[in-house]
């Protein structure tokens, strides 16, 4: 099974193939992401019923929960890419680490900011030193550390490798974030939908949330494709295929102008 999977994946380790694959996927992913995000958020923010306890302010869940879940999802995918990049020495996987890191950092920032905005009316404070809030903040610092470390070396390829190692080390924080609300019984509420039992949320509120979740995932994928494409071009700029690509683009651009 592993053999056939690797044979199937192998061509995509070639930067040129991956560049074109990302280019083909990008419009579909971006289109779907925008559609699901608009659908989920408009449904959630305007049409789903208000909460019996929290009133209308619970509606921030449609941004807060998806961004928080995918801030961890992005970190896991980044760490998996880092692992593949280091173990099998696949360069495109290492570039993917750098492609994902800033997106994950922004997702984490969104989760923290919307969480603060939600905390103000519900808990009466913007910030508490609750276990989950703190560990999410640590996640943001880890993302920033990976980005900073990758940029600290004069030789870019070495910086990415070292940053990949840091990304793998930082994985220890993920279970801490996930289980923080169970281990420490603090202010942040428990999971609403990510448990195996029946979700503790009404279907009329659950559906827009699930759609927003899908939307944030698709946006993550689309932005990763976009950033990975530019990473590939940056690192392969001296290769003939990139030169050819640039020449053909310049030629078609000129034709348009004439």
């Amino acid at each position: 099974m592993w053999g056939s999977m690797f044979r199937w994946l192998d061509p995509y380790a070639k930067p040129e193939t991956l560049y074109h694959l990302c280019g083909r996927l990008l419009p579909y992913l971006m289109g779907l992401a925008l559609f699901t995000l608009l659908l989920g958020n408009i449904w959630g923010l305007a049409f789903s019923p208000a909460d019996y306890q929290q009133g209308d302010s619970y509606r921030i869940i449609y941004i807060h929960v998806p961004s928080a879940i995918w801030s961890m999802g992005a970190y896991s995918s980044m760490a998996i890419a880092a692992f593949i990049g280091l173990v099998w020495q696949i360069r495109v996987a290492q570039w993917a680490v750098l492609a994902i890191a800033p997106i994950g950092a922004v997702y984490t920032a969104i989760a923290l900011i919307t969480g603060a905005a939600w905390g103000k009316p519900m808990w009466g404070t913007w910030w508490v030193w609750d276990a989950r809030l703190t560990s999410e903040l640590v996640l943001l610092f880890l993302y920033l550390g990976v980005i900073a470390l990758a940029g600290a070396f004069s030789e870019a390829a070495r910086g990415i490798k070292v940053a990949s190692l840091l990304a793998i080390v930082g994985v220890v924080n993920l279970p801490i974030i996930h289980f923080s609300v169970e281990w420490w019984n603090t202010l942040h509420q428990g999971a609403t939908i990510t448990k195996f039992a029946k979700p503790s949320i009404d279907p009329s509120m659950l559906w827009p949330l699930l759609i927003s979740l899908l939307g944030f995932a698709l946006l993550l994928a689309a932005l990763t494709c976009l950033r990975l494409r530019s990473q590939i071009l940056m690192f392969e700029q001296h290769r003939p295929w990139v030169r050819q690509l640039v020449d053909s683009m310049a030629a078609s651009h000129q034709k348009e102008q004439n």
């Binding site: 640590v138 610092f141 990976v146 470390l149 600290a152 070396f153 070495r158 930082g170």
Partner: peptide, 23 residues
């Protein structure tokens, strides 16, 4: 070890390791 060959060692090392100290 991570920042050994980095151009801007010192403060960077604090940035990447302090988050891991928090637990």
């Amino acid at each position: 070890a991570l920042t050994m060959a980095a151009d801007k060692g010192g403060i960077l090392q604090a940035l990447i390791i302090l988050p891991l100290y928090i637990p």
